[in-house]
Every structure is written in C-alpha cells, then in structure tokens.
C-alpha cells in the first residue's frame, strides 16, 4: 500500500500503484496539467519537470491553479 497526500487529503494507492510522476498523477486524476501549479513536499515544481518528477510513498503534493477572484 502507498499513500500520497494530495491537497491535504491522504489518498491510498495499492502496492506499486502510486503514479510514477506528477504528470502521471494528473493524467490519472483527469486534470489538465497546462494550468496546474504543483508543490511537492513544500518545494515548487516547474511545470516542465512534471513528467520527470517522481512520486514516492508518503509524499505530500499540492495542486493549485488560478481560479476566479477579486
């Protein structure tokens, strides 16, 4: 079993089923990566590095984007 904390919520994956990279995670969530900003364990990850940034059990990832606001 593996766990990723996604936007503050612990998400459980079966053994070896944690998405390999941020890009894979976004694909599995059905989220368009072009507008997403990611922070992995408190470190900002540039969008260009989404396909090469590997995910490991126990990490915390924040996925944010621009939303309407004043």
């Amino acid at each position: 079993m593996g766990v990723l904390k996604i936007n503050g919520k612990e998400t459980v994956f079966e053994e070896n089923k944690i998405p390999a990279t941020i890009e894979d995670l976004l694909k599995s969530l059905g989220v368009e990566s072009a507008t997403v900003i990611a922070e992995l364990d408190g470190q900002i990850v540039e969008r260009a590095k989404f396909p090469t940034t590997e995910l490991r059990d126990g990490q915390a990832i924040e996925l944010v984007r621009f939303v309407p606001g004043g």
Binding site: V31, V36, V64, R65, V67, P68, G69
Partner: peptide, 19 residues
C-alpha cells in the same frame, strides 16, 4: 484582471473556470 490561487478540485473535471 485579478485571479486567485486555490487548490485544484480534483473531483471536478470542469474546474478550470479561467480557461
């Protein structure tokens, strides 16, 4: 044009209002 920054709603495929 002002915008805010918030967590992606990973349960909503149409979350990207600013497209």
């Amino acid at each position: 044009v002002t915008v805010a920054l918030r967590r992606v709603d990973i349960t909503d495929k149409n979350d990207d209002m600013l497209a």
